[in-house]
């Protein structure tokens, strides 16, 4: 398969650098430290998962990488440059469920980022077709979101995130609302798409299994204040298989993450 054939040249994967980032939310009664001195490096082409209990600031950190929110202190760079506002040329974002526009068809949803930038209709359509093919939704372009299953909707979201060929793909709990089986399948699908495109992926989840199964590296975060408590390299070979879930390596990695999370919960 020729991934995103119409997008030439394929942009190289990008790096994400987070340096001493802090975030303070001001409320009327007190200041809440959402993130404290967070630093991490995501090398080009890596699959990095941020995991932690709710309130640890993992989604906040992702939104900062997307330029959707600004940190109180520290710097974040994407492909070497800061990201003061969203830049679809450098970063594609895949959100949780229900982020597709219900009034647009699947292909129109995928075309949306291109339509904003005045890409011609035929060019748009061709690129959307390619992206839909890449995520395994060839032939579903004319359907509206309400005619698609939860897993298919998230495939459309991924296609939308990839259609501009961004060097970095950020994913905010994209499979959180899916049932267990669909979630496993979508994990495998995502790894296949990642392998085909070579993008840098930063993926947020609260599922330990999902984290270890997908990642090259897992960053474990704890809440109040949100900070990084561990950084694991996942040495499991690729492609990942279902059998690995019951192996010793997998088990010990998951246990290590769990011990951190239990401490902070």
């Amino acid at each position: 398969m020729q991934p995103l054939a119409n997008i030439t040249p394929l942009k190289p994967a990008g790096a994400v650098e987070v340096r001493n980032v802090g975030q303070i939310f001001k409320t009327t009664t007190q200041d809440v430290v959402a993130l404290e001195d967070v630093s991490l490096d995501v090398k080009p082409g890596r699959f990095v998962v941020l995991v932690g209990p709710s309130g640890c600031g993992k989604s906040t950190l992702l939104m900062m990488m997307a330029g959707l929110r600004q940190q109180t202190s520290g710097t974040i760079t994407i492909s070497g440059a800061p990201i003061p506002e969203p830049d679809p040329n450098r970063v594609g974002v895949v959100f949780q469920e229900a982020s597709l526009f219900p009034w647009l068809t699947a292909e129109e949803n995928v075309e949306f980022p291109l339509a904003l930038r005045g890409v011609t209709k035929s060019d748009r359509r061709a690129r959307a077709q390619d992206a839909l093919k890449l995520v395994g939704l060839d032939g579903f372009g004319k359907r509206h979101p309400h005619e698609l299953s939860g897993g298919m909707k998230q495939r459309v979201s991924i296609a939308r995130g990839l259609v501009q060929d961004p060097p970095v793909l950020l994913m905010d709990e994209p499979f959180a609302a899916l049932d267990e089986q669909t979630r496993m399948t979508m994990g495998d699908e995502l790894l296949r798409i990642w392998a085909a495109t070579g993008k840098t992926v930063v993926f947020v989840t609260h599922s330990l299994t999902e984290a270890v199964y997908l990642a090259d590296e897992v960053i474990v975060m704890s809440p109040r204040p949100g900070r990084i408590v561990d950084h694991l390299q996942v040495s499991l070979p690729r492609p990942r298989t279902y059998e690995m879930l019951s192996g010793d390596t997998f088990g010990s990695l998951r246990d290590r993450i769990w011990r951190h999370i239990r401490k902070s919960a």
Binding site: A66, G67, L68, E85, P86, D87, P88, V91, V93, F95, Q96, A98, S99, F101, W103, F112, P113, A115, L116, R117
Partner: peptide, 24 residues
């Protein structure tokens, strides 16, 4: 969520009005 999506793909206020607000 829809407004965040539009913002993350760099929609101008005009585009947000016509492509997100109006159809919603």
């Amino acid at each position: 969520e829809h407004l965040t999506v539009a913002r993350s793909y760099g929609a101008t206020p005009m585009q947000t009005a016509f492509r997100v607000y109006l159809p919603s």
